[in-house]
Amino acid sequence: MTIDPAILEALSGVSTATITTVLLKKGLRNVWMRGTKPIRAGQPRLIGPAFTLRFVPSREDLATPESWSSPISTRAAIEAMPAGCITVVDAMGVTDAGIFGDILCARMAKKGVAGLVTDGVVRDVAGVLGTGLPVWCQGAAAPASVAGLTFVAWQEPIGCGGVAVFPDDIVMVDDDGAVVIPQKLAADVAAVAAEQERLEAWIMQEIEGGASLPGLYPPNAENKARYEAGAKTQR
């Protein structure tokens, strides 16, 4: 999936916090993936289509080092990832088995994958950081994925951090974590979110000028009219 450039442009200056508010107003409360923290400070804000991977609990006859050579493996899934995607991995919140290490992350970076999001953890963390691949996760653990998980599928609906994610949903990540935007709502959310960011920037200017919160955040009719008048002047 390629995201409409107009949607990308509209979302480029929007935070995940704003997206959650916009989606809340549309009735979607469960869009922020729990446990998806930036692995290091200063990672870029990213927007991309979701490429999903799914693990289930470990089963000893399937979760073996030999499974890494199977046609159904994380290795095969990585080779199917398109450039620009954000890989979203359902690790069921397991934090004592690293889903990917430095070699797999290096391959993802080489293929142009935009970032990795998981409710689990990675391993070989120093090496992962060295690949430059932006990662949102719950931290690091030395054991391999097969120590606690069985890989079963890619590009299927998953649950990551308690949130339903479908292939090609739009995923946004920044310092506050990861948020999913359903495909069918993307254009509308982008337009509303961009306007919300502009309004909040104006409100912040008012606050810095000494204005009080009541009637300003959210704006009452008078303040909304002042904001709209100023916006028209700037166009």
Rank of each mutant, 00 (worst) to 15 (best):
G120H: 04
F51Q: 01
V122A: 02
M92P: 00
G115P: 08
A106F: 03
D96P: 00
R59Q: 11
A91M: 11
R107M: 12
W68V: 13
I86W: 03
I78V: 14
R45Q: 10
V89N: 03
D96F: 08
F100Y: 14
E60K: 03
V56P: 03
T52H: 08
V117P: 07
G93A: 07
A63M: 07
G35P: 06
A76M: 12
R75C: 06
R40K: 15
R75M: 08
S70F: 09
R40T: 14
A80F: 04
I78H: 02
R75K: 13
T95W: 03
G93R: 00
F55P: 02
E66I: 12
G35D: 08
T52I: 06
V117Y: 10
T74L: 15
R54S: 13
M81R: 01
T95D: 12
T87K: 07
G112W: 06
S69R: 13
L46R: 08
A50Q: 04
M81T: 05
D102R: 15
V88F: 11
A77S: 12
G98Q: 04
S73E: 15
W68L: 15
L116M: 10
G112F: 06
L116Q: 07
D96R: 04
F55L: 06
V89I: 15
P71R: 07
S70L: 10
S69Y: 11
P38A: 12
K111S: 06
S67K: 14
A50L: 07
C105R: 05
P49S: 14
M92D: 08
T118W: 09
K110M: 14
R59A: 05
D90Q: 15
A63N: 05
I78K: 10
R54H: 11
S67E: 05
I86M: 05
A63W: 09
I99W: 12
G120V: 05
I72S: 13
M81A: 06
A97N: 02
S67M: 10
I86N: 06
P57A: 09
K110D: 13
P82T: 08
L104E: 13
G98A: 06
V94F: 07
V113H: 05
S67F: 06
Q43W: 08
A80N: 02
G93Y: 06
P44I: 14
S70Q: 01
R107S: 11
F100S: 01
E66H: 12
G98N: 04
V121E: 05
S70N: 15
F51M: 04
K111P: 01
P65V: 08
R54N: 09
I103G: 01
A114E: 11
R107A: 14
A76V: 07
P49L: 01
R54M: 07
L116V: 03
V122C: 03
T87E: 04
R107K: 15
P57M: 07
V94M: 08
T87C: 15
L104R: 02
L62S: 07
G42P: 08
A50R: 00
V56C: 02
A114D: 05
A97G: 03
P44W: 10
D102H: 09
V113S: 02
V122G: 00
A41S: 14
D96L: 06
K37I: 12
L62Y: 07
D102N: 10
F51E: 00
K110Y: 13
L46M: 14
F55M: 09
P49R: 15
T95I: 12
G42Q: 04
V122N: 02
C105Y: 01
F51G: 00
I99G: 00
Q43V: 14
D90W: 08
A114T: 09
